[in-house]
């Protein structure tokens, strides 16, 4: 649940979602649910040479189970907050 809450805080920010099939999609995080399904808006494919047909889809729903990485905006990472949250999670609280 930690990552769910964490991603919810990033709604409205620009992220890059890298899929397990190597496709990377950049867009504004619209929403995320408990399964870490991700909705992006104003998306564009990072490697457009490889995936020209996906050029700028407007909104996009990505299944949580196919996500490999989510690249975050550097200033969207509150290290202190994450530290506290992971400690709390580790204590089972």
């Amino acid at each position: 649940m930690l990552f769910f809450s964490y991603f919810k805080d990033l709604v409205g920010r620009e992220v890059t979602v890298e899929l397990k099939n190597d496709l990377a999609i950049r867009g504004t995080l619209h929403s995320v649910d408990q399964y870490l399904n991700i909705k992006l808006e104003n998306t564009k494919v990072v490697d457009q040479d490889k995936y020209p047909h996906m050029l700028s889809v407007r909104n996009c729903f990505i299944r949580g189970s196919v996500v490999r990485y989510v690249q975050l905006p550097p200033d969207g990472v509150d290290v202190e907050l994450l530290h506290d949250a992971t400690r709390r999670e580790a204590r089972g609280g």
Partner: peptide
């Protein structure tokens, strides 16, 4: 098996607006 779905309105990607979906086949 649907990894991703999207609204595609870019005429360069496809001439008509459509729902675009990627399908997981199990043989990547």
């Amino acid at each position: 098996a649907i990894s991703l779905h999207a609204v595609s309105r870019d005429p360069e990607a496809y001439p008509s607006p459509c729902i675009y979906a990627q399908i997981e086949t199990g043989a990547d």
